[in-house]
Design a protein around this nucleic acid. Sequence first.
RNA 1: GUGGGUGUAGCUCAGUUGGCAGAGCACUGGGUUGUGAUCCCAGGUGUCGCGGGUUCAAGUCCCGUCACUCACCCCA
Length: 422
Amino acid sequence: MADIPPGGFVAPKGIPEYVGPDFVAVRDTLVREADRAGYAHLELPVFEDTALYARGVGESTDVVSKEMYSFADRGGRSVTLRPEGTAGVVRSVIEHGMDRGTLPVKLRYAGPFFRYERPQAGRYRQLQQVGVEAIGVDDPALDAEVLAVADAGFRALGLTGYRLELTSLGDAETRPEYRATLQRFLEKCDLDEATRERARINPLRVLDDKRPEVRDQLADAPLMVDHLSDAAAAHHAKVKQYLDELGVAYTENPRMVRGLDYYTKTTFEFVHDGLGSQSGIGGGGRYDGLMAELGGQALSGVGFGIGVDRTLLACRAEGLDVAPARRVEVFGVPLGEAAKDHLVGLVGQLRRAGIRADLAYGGRGLKGAMKAADRSGARYALVLGDRDLEAGTIQLKDLGDGSQTEVALADAAAAVDRAVHG
RNA sequence: GUGGGUGUAGCUCAGUUGGCAGAGCACUGGGUUGUGAUCCCAGGUGUCGCGGGUUCAAGUCCCGUCACUCACCCCA
């Protein structure tokens, strides 16, 4: 039999665990805004054919070339734990013919994704995302809707210290030409070997280099937004107009880069300054070629992925309470076995009536049970002892102001209901 | 993949020139078998990350190793 490792079992490297209610509160708040805009839930597989990501995300990306959890299953097939959501959504849309119905197809997903990276603040090997995709209609109003859904999610959580950075990466007709122009510019710059290699593989990525000596050289580098086709420029202008109408604030960042190859036209990132090095709490954009690349119709799509882990960190950085402190509304405090027997039933009755309730288990003393009631966050305690049982009553105590009222045991559930909802 | 920092109680940490392993918080019980959040008293846990070395003696010094963490890179 396998041994227990020294120091005990621990979760795999770089994987956060969330014990309190905060994580679920953040995730569900983000999902709720997608639901409100009509995005339907899609439950995706956690692993897919490795080729799906190689084709969809792009062989030259870091995500595919060095961060994937890939392995051979028992049948010898190469599979990969999903590093992102869009490729899987598009595959599902094509496989199930969803693009044959009413367009756009609007879907949302939530769950864990996996990237083999060195962990640090806000960067995990198992990361949690909420995402949406709107596929099949190339309408700038949809780009704006997607952005508004993400923005509404952040606002619903109470976040204020973030900004939306926006740009356009152009379309398939003009991007290759711009790319060549940028590469010619970069060849004339004084760059180290690693950066030259980057300029060869993905020249756009050099544009957002953080080093001052590189930035200085790139001050008048050619930018994509100045080389857009008429159609792409018109699309970009329309997106900004709709954002204004939706009341979504943004700043233009023409040097923004995405690490996934499929983005075209609208590209964006939500940035929060309270997180340290990993400041992106969400990102996404439009992808014109992905459907066709994965064997479907030549349809465009647009979507985002929000990092739930980082959004939670952002909430904490802003000191926000994202989850209610109240675990339950009512807490039962039994004095003795007979009282406990009654309270077990009463608590069950309260729960069936939709009231969150708990009680002190394990035969704790009165003081300990009251303490547990306090810690539970309950507004009310139900105190029951032999004296009450004989009299057919129960004590309903308001833990906020300390007042206590005696009610008939038979009316206890109704009295609690009035107290909680009144 | 590259570089820095840190590993002592459940948590946050202190521990002097090497000399008995500590505090606060939290938890449990009691003061008060009929009242919590305040107060008082009591209680307990440690392979000092792990392995080796130096020494009469190592939490402390040396070597190795692992883990965590921050940053580069990359991205959510």
